Simulated scan of single mutants.
Amino acid sequence: MKEEIRQLVERWQAAIRAGDMDGILADHAEDVLMFDVPEPLQAEGKAEYRKTWELFFQYGKPGKDVFTIEDLRITAGSEVAFCTGLLRIGGSAHPVCRLTLGLTRVDGHWRIAHEHHSAPHALQPAPRRDAS
């Protein structure tokens, strides 16, 4: 089961690297929900999801370094699974984003139902409050 999911993720990564939009969309649920780093806050359904990748490719050409998943971890049950990983984007030397995928099994096939990309945001130390 985990190997089947790993292969799905690897196909998806290869499609992103190739700029193959049909391949990017292939294993996603029709009602996929995506939370991404750039706006919009969320994209719901394959048509909206597709737009997020069109935006992505405006800033980075397809290629082997455009999207690299590292430290992929898979947790799977019989009907639901999730994956986490770290992303190197656009040839970055180190991971710059986090990735979480939520999958469901539909008619015997795994489908990505939820995708979440996030980037860490450094916070400044909170101002000290005097104990008076």
Rank of each mutant, 00 (worst) to 15 (best):
K2D: 12
E3M: 05
R6L: 15
Q7K: 15
L8A: 10
L8P: 09
L8M: 12
V9A: 06
V9I: 14
R11I: 09
W12E: 03
Q13V: 15
A14T: 12
A14F: 10
I16Q: 02
R17A: 10
R17D: 02
D20I: 05
L25G: 00
L25V: 00
L25H: 01
D27K: 04
D27C: 04
H28S: 08
A29G: 00
V32Y: 13
D36Y: 14
D36K: 06
D36G: 13
D36R: 11
V37A: 09
V37R: 04
P38K: 11
E39T: 12
L41P: 01
Q42Y: 03
G45D: 00
G45F: 00
K46C: 03
K46P: 04
A47N: 04
E48H: 10
K51C: 02
T52S: 03
E54H: 13
E54N: 13
F56V: 05
F56I: 06
F57V: 04
F57R: 07
Q58I: 09
G60N: 15
G63D: 05
G63M: 13
K64Y: 10
D65I: 12
D65L: 11
D65V: 13
V66C: 15
I69G: 03
E70W: 04
E70S: 10
D71M: 03
D71P: 05
I74S: 05
T75N: 13
A76V: 10
A76M: 06
S78P: 03
E79T: 11
V80R: 08
A81T: 03
F82C: 05
C83I: 06
T84E: 12
T84K: 12
T84H: 12
L86A: 09
L87Y: 14
L87T: 08
R88P: 10
R88Y: 11
I89K: 09
G90W: 09
G91C: 00
A93E: 13
H94W: 09
H94R: 14
V96M: 06
V96Y: 04
C97A: 15
C97M: 15
R98K: 09
R98V: 04
T100W: 04
T100V: 07
T100P: 12
L101K: 01
L101V: 02
G102D: 03
T104P: 00
T104Q: 11
R105T: 01
D107T: 07
H109Y: 07
W110N: 01
W110S: 00
R111W: 01
R111S: 01
E115L: 05
H116Y: 03
H116N: 08
S118M: 01
S118H: 02
S118K: 02
P120K: 07
H121N: 08
A122D: 04
P125S: 03
P125V: 04
A126V: 07
P127Y: 02
R129K: 13
D130W: 08
S132Y: 07
